[in-house]
Write a protein that binds this DNA or RNA. Structure first.
Lengths: 348, 348
DNA sequence: TTGTAGGCGTTATCAA
DNA sequence: TTGATAACGCCTACAA
């Protein structure tokens, strides 16, 4: 039933001998309609292959039942490359929004765009989910504006006290702690950390904070020379590990701020004639699908993408409905594989 | 500017002292409006933070400027697991549709749904892109109906003569040929093939057909005992390779119908004490992101996801606009890595 | 070059 | 429980 003569609710009203609003109500299972009328209307609707026109409905009701997912890639790498961790998130967000009866509009975010204008103001979506942000300070600035405008949105990112807007994120401090703690328990005392510590990525800073706490708890000093900047990508990890190896600073293990960094680091170490885990132990962060297939398989900190997707979707919807919603910190957990030199699988 | 008092084109008309249609025209840069008027209108629109309400526009114009991407997962595996190859496709489709000025609605397809009713009839989207189909015969049946209804859609899948609808797909026969040819040139004569040959997955059949052609061209017999059924997943590959190893049929190499199958196969071989590529050479199909990070890195057939995304999007749009569109076969190419035992990198 | 009138297909409001 | 009427915000004639 496409094109020319699509049935409208008026057609149905005509055939069913009722008023048009009655049709609307019957199809929406509103209790304001008698069972008999409802059945008659529903039958005719089915026969005619009738579908509510969402544009008309949205126009009238000023609601779209649609969420927008804006993905921002920090890396300028390959045009086609998407952070695999985000891809996992995307899957769970898609499922969660379907579960809640929302359609999902997806788009790659341009930092230059006026997000709210593009989506909420244009009535394309009732709310926005942000996945990835350029650098935190300027993102916060933009968000504050959105917030004042009364926009409905959530961000996957660092959960920090008193930040504007709504954030869902992993407990990065805990993750960093678990990674370092694991290595320390394997008798490593010279553990490098690969990850940016500028204000741009608070999540990386938290991971390092956890690393420091683990050291403190075990009575170990933190050597600042063991920390090397690296952003998300494999290439950054490669460079950072190379730099570390060249620096002459002694180390026996590396805690990486992302799995991609770990992948790059392993590659760099290999080129320096260092084997993982024999010569150096490695722990990653994220648990991307590739992690378990790497050689050696990557010990890493797993983020709960399933819970994340659920929380993100439920939070925007809450916000849309004007219900109270607060930022959520999701637990992280250690997944032990081969790269850290541990043979023991931690269960669960 | 959210909620209560969003400006409408009428407001602007009022402020600018013109009629409402003039506002529409000015904002659309229609030549029917004087430069002065246009500027005045545009300024006011900007000041008020005005945005066209897409629902109103769509309702009026009966067009949504939106594409629906329906993803179907064949595997019943982990709820959260999505075929990594599809994820790559998703990325390129998202980019392509943005480039063409279309929004993208994404959803996981339920085989039970009435796709067209859900999207096109409801005026949520102008057209549909299908990624993945359950089994081919029943899919074709459904598609035929869609086609008769005059729906606008494309499918990523096998390009077969005289099939209804519009298909974009890789040259699977060529891919299968390249894989087998590569192995034969490495002096393998006993090459197994892991991949389903039922009517459900014509793509796998084509890959096997290419395998057979390569054998024929090199004057080799095809031993049917070397072919073992396997669907997409790692688990299937694992089982198939296990079965193969247990069968006692002699082989020195395996051509797998997907990279996931190859991953499972390598795992199985390893458990049988067989090393790749020392004992058995392996070639995959897809070139998923993980492929290059596997141990050993996976020689595989690359599908051009970038071109695929472009072609899919352009084809639906063509179809929507009533322009002629035909199915497209995209070239595949061999990517030589370690698992096939070749050290030589083929360039380009 | 600008304005007027009407309708796209719903849902909300109110009265019956 | 149902029905009449009026929006929702825009766009396309057509008239001025």
């Amino acid at each position: 039933m496409k094109g020319k003569n699509k049935p409208t609710s008026v057609d149905i009203a005509h055939l069913a001998g009722v008023s048009q609003p009655t049709v609307s109500r019957a199809l929406r299972d509103s209790p304001l309609v008698s069972l008999e009328t409802r059945k008659r209307v529903q039958r005719i609707a089915r026969e005619l292959n009738y579908k509510v026109d969402v544009n008309a409905r949205n126009l009238r009701s000023q609601r779209t039942n649609t969420l927008a997912l804006l993905l921002f890639e920090d890396s300028d790498e390959h045009e086609a490359f998407i952070n695999p961790f985000f891809l996992s998130m995307l899957g769970s967000i898609t499922r969660a929004s379907a579960q809640h009866g929302y359609d999902l509009l997806i788009s790659f975010q341009q930092l230059s765009d006026d997000w709210n204008a593009e989506y909420e103001d244009a009535n394309k979506a009732d709310g926005i989910i942000f996945l990835g942000y350029g650098d935190y300070p300027s993102y916060i600035e933009r968000i504050s504006k959105l917030d004042q405008e009364g926009a409905h949105f959530v961000t996957w990112g660092p959960v920090i006290k008193d930040q504007p807007g709504l954030f869902i994120g992993s407990d990065n401090e805990l993750g960093g702690y678990l990674a370092a703690d694991h290595l320390i328990r394997m008798n490593h005392t010279r553990i490098a950390f690969l990850g940016d510590q500028s204000n741009d990525y608070p999540e990386f800073r938290d991971r390092y904070a956890g690393y420091c706490r683990a050291h403190a708890e075990h009575g170990l000093e933190v050597d600042p020379r063991l920390r090397v900047n690296a952003f998300f990508s494999e290439e950054c990890g490669y460079k950072a590990a190379h730099q570390l190896a060249m620096s002459g600073v002694e180390f026996t293990a590396i805690s990486c701020a992302s799995d991609l960094i770990a992948i790059g680091a392993i590659k760099a170490l290999r080129e320096h004639g260092l084997r993982v885990p024999r010569d150096k132990a490695i722990v990653g962060f994220d648990d991307i699908p590739t992690a378990e297939h790497l050689a050696p398989s990557l010990t890493t900190i797993q983020q709960d993408t399933f819970a994340a997707g659920q929380a993100l979707v439920e939070s925007v919807i809450r916000s849309i409905n004007g219900e109270p919603a607060k930022s959520i910190l999701l637990p992280t957990r250690l997944v032990v594989r081969d790269s850290s030199g541990a043979k023991v699988q931690i269960k669960q």
